[in-house]
């Protein structure tokens, strides 16, 4: 078998280089999204202007953000490609890498590479009503798609955002939730918290019963669910009750990653790699894969 020289393709659109080597990037701004400080949104620009300007991605794709000397984490872009500017990474401090990232401030350098994963099925979603269901940090995985769908409003039907967190303070992207999204045409935002307090006069309920109370129609709709495993588990039960079929339900999977480009053998569900064939899967697709997650 002849071995023919080839050049690698990577998301940046620039000439080939080792896809495992990150680009140097600068943190422009850090915004605390959750009151507890557990979720921070990092606005990042790649120092090489040409690379940054030609950087392309679609909602649902992820980037590898690294703190040199500590490690890399695979984080879904919270920004949307329809709005050029810094790349946004909304990061929850969970392990060694993300905790180190949380120590960084504007002006400091990180490594960035991407865009990885399949992203949301934009073509298949055209013309459909979209119901976004997010729990806690899960909104960071959906926000890009929400903004994208609002920027390309005519491509999609009715949009509903259902989002819950532990308290009002823990709701992420409050400006979008309270100011931007409710103002968009044929778009409604439904928020709930687990624990009420004096800042909150809205519903106090877990997402699954709250969702059922809203009784969204499965007709011509897709529903995208993102959040902690337990929330997803019970939300799926509710969606089944509401009549949503597995093909209509879109999920984002999360597994341990190292390379992000499908070659380190780590993030597999059966023969599918979450970093390449995912992280976006329909429930119908997931049901054909081993449940090792």
């Amino acid at each position: 078998m002849a071995v023919v020289d080839k050049q690698c393709k990577c998301g940046s659109g620039t000439p080939a280089r080792n896809p495992l080597i990150p680009y140097v990037a600068t943190i422009e701004k850090v915004v605390d999204e959750a009151e507890s400080g557990s979720v921070r949104n990092f606005f990042v620009t790649i120092d090489d202007r040409e690379v940054h300007d030609s950087f392309s991605y679609i909602p649902g794709q992820c980037g590898m953000i690294s703190v040199l000397g500590v490690g890399e984490s695979m984080i879904a872009y919270a920004s949307t490609p329809t709005r050029p500017g810094p790349l946004e990474f909304a990061v929850k401090a969970a392990g060694r890498n993300t905790n180190a990232l949380h120590e960084l401030r504007a002006g400091q350098k990180v490594g960035v590479r991407g865009a990885y994963g399949n992203g949301f099925p934009l073509e298949a979603m055209k013309g459909k009503n979209i119901i976004y269901v997010a729990g806690g940090i899960g909104m960071s995985g959906l926000r890009s798609m929400v903004n994208y769908s609002l920027d390309r409003r005519d491509d999609f039907g009715r949009i509903q955002v259902v989002y819950g967190a532990r308290t009002r303070g823990e709701l992420c992207f409050k400006e979008d939730l309270f100011e931007n999204w409710p103002k968009a045409p044929d778009t409604s935002v439904h928020l709930t918290v687990d624990v009420g307090d004096e800042t909150w006069d809205g519903p106090v309920a877990l997402i699954p019963p709250y969702l059922e109370s809203l009784d969204p129609s499965p007709e011509g709709s897709v529903v995208i669910v993102c959040g902690p495993p337990i929330m997803i588990k019970y939300t799926l039960i509710s969606l089944d009750k509401l009549g949503f079929r597995p093909e209509q339900i879109i999920l984002t999977m999360e597994l341990k990653m190292q390379c992000g480009i499908g070659i380190c053998g780590r993030c597999n569900l059966g023969s599918q790699y979450v970093c390449q064939d995912g992280p976006v899967f329909t429930l119908a697709e997931l049901e054909t894969l081993p449940d090792e997650y």
């Binding site: 990577c10 499908g262 070659i263």
Partner: peptide
């Protein structure tokens, strides 16, 4: 190994 590290969408550069 070529199928994985070399012929995929992304290439392992040092392997290549």
């Amino acid at each position: 190994l070529d199928d994985i590290l070399y012929d995929g969408e992304f290439m392992d550069e040092t392997y290549r």
